[in-house]
Design a protein around this nucleic acid. Structure first.
Lengths: 143, 143
DNA sequence: CAGTCACGCAACTTATTCAGTTACTAGAAA
DNA sequence: TTTCTAGTAACTGAATAAGTTGCGTGACTG
């Protein structure tokens, strides 16, 4: 795959699920649709389950389902569940610099990036899975 | 270094320059402050020069300078100059899917990610280098 | 003019990340 | 008991990007 594939895969899968919330999907089904591998799917969806967005069941007729209505799942939920930090890179080691100006500036740059990161999450929280795949979707026979 | 290092390096360097706009800085100076390599610095700053944010001069007393006032350089300018696409991953190959629902959904997911990307750039355009390193910076003797 | 300094650039090396893959275990239903 | 599915660990391979080396080019200096 390519960059941002986790977020893209999650978004894709959950949007699919939003179309038929009652259907149980196996990781193989999902992987086939997303053109990837069942293990990769389980890895990504596992994070979403930990965050309470999905449920999974083992055994016959097992698989994955949304844990709550699509309109209650925002892109921020997904983003945070995946531990993505696209902008601020999670305030690294930050070994203190020799120079005071340097140190102060490093801190300031980190602050600014954090602010941007927060803005991004705020923006993501304004869109739900239901917005990505509206009930009026012309491709789905609404069942 | 680590992830997002280009954006971080650029931000750091330009903020530094904002403190003393008239000073000519060599890539070695900058690399030392940023704890990295002169060639890496030139690679990143070269992109910013292409975008008209910086100027560079060869030879004795050569180096790098801001091409315009710090308050006229936004984070979006930097972000775009670096060709970063943190969110939308730049609408890849997109081989058409067999399935109509699939294809429509892929398109839709791409649209959503593009919208988020645009929001991010809009947010970045609200902050300038001067905001990152204000003239009132307590660390710098304002000269 | 010769020497030095700095950018420009290409090529290579190294480290990291992550998707992909294989193989196995555990649990639930038929 | 068989089968189907998730869960997980371990490994592989590709891609990305930083780091490094070396050399060319242009500009200032003495």
């Amino acid at each position: 795959m390519k960059r941002n594939s986790r977020l893209s895969l999650a978004l894709h899968t959950l949007s699919h699920m939003a179309g038929e919330p009652d259907r149980m999907r196996t990781s193989s089904d999902i992987a086939e649709h997303a053109r990837t591998n069942p293990v990769v799917v389980r890895r990504v969806l596992g994070k979403l389950r930990e965050a309470g967005l999905l449920t999974s069941e083992k055994g016959h007729s097992g698989g994955w389902q949304l844990a709550k209505p699509a309109s209650n799942i925002t892109l921020a939920d997904i983003y945070l569940a995946l531990d993505e930090r696209l902008v601020s890179a999670g305030n690294k080691d930050a070994e203190p610099s020799h120079c005071t100006v340097e140190s102060g500036l490093q801190t300031r740059v980190g602050e600014v990036l954090d602010e941007i990161e927060n803005s991004l999450v705020a923006r993501l929280s304004e869109t739900t899975i239901a917005d990505v795949h509206p009930a009026s979707c012309s491709y789905c026979g609404s069942k």
